[in-house]
Design a protein around this nucleic acid. Sequence first.
DNA 1: CCGATATTTAACTAAATGGTTAATTAACCA
DNA 2: TGGTTAATTAACCATTTAGTTAAATATCGG
Lengths: 129, 129
Amino acid sequence: MHDQLSQTFQALADPTRRAILAKLSLGEANVSDLAKPFLKEMSLPAITKHLKVLENAGLVTKTRDAQYRPCKLNGAPLKDATDWMEHYRIFWEASLDRLGEYLKTVTAKEKETIKKKKIAKGKNHGRKK
Amino acid sequence: MHDQLSQTFQALADPTRRAILAKLSLGEANVSDLAKPFLKEMSLPAITKHLKVLENAGLVTKTRDAQYRPCKLNGAPLKDATDWMEHYRIFWEASLDRLGEYLKTVTAKEKETIKKKKIAKGKNHGRKK
DNA sequence: CCGATATTTAACTAAATGGTTAATTAACCA
DNA sequence: TGGTTAATTAACCATTTAGTTAAATATCGG
């Protein structure tokens, strides 16, 4: 999947991992602290793996302190994710009516550009008629 | 994976699917229109499957028009995703120094609460000494 | 009706994911 | 030194994911 953004979203696509991040948002915690709330549902190695996913996504950094591994939240990758989503804010924020208005006025130019490209290519994949 | 938020993030964790959403943000498009930019890299059924993922996540709705299947972006699930991430804004927005300050002052109370819980339980998983 | 176009379904595959248990590594402490 | 705690690694397994090709379905248009 390679790209950073995909890795970030992938890491967030699991409730256990999101819960780990939530806990880390309250401050550093070592692995067994993070694992404690889940040990009824899954094993410690499972948590180790989830942490590895978060680390690989750059959302968590693990340091060493004796036999402990204090983990720390790193929010940086979330910035790109939020920036991406921000692009789509209009699609949930406005009422459906206002959204329709917006599309008619603001993206009219882009739509025209696309239409012209299609016509230029001599193909009509858009719709019949 | 069940929960809506996980499904949303999962759907976003693929560059092809994000590109499909980007195109749909410019307006409705049918399946072959959406597929066109990718047909050098993957087959049409692959796109059908990606669209199915987006549909299941509620991000795309497909309607019928003759043999065409016009698709429309539905941003609603992105609201919850953004709301979740908003919680973490502090972790990327502020400079590291200011973040440190923030954590010392604002979350001091929460940290204390956690510490006390640990002591009450008679265990010291936080750190030695 | 027939041929072309648009899209989906079926059946299959390779790799990734999310979990397990058992063993291993590493550091503390008495 | 030896036992205990913290965490990771290894080996394994089931399910899901992301893709494939080939066949099926459905609608249009002449």
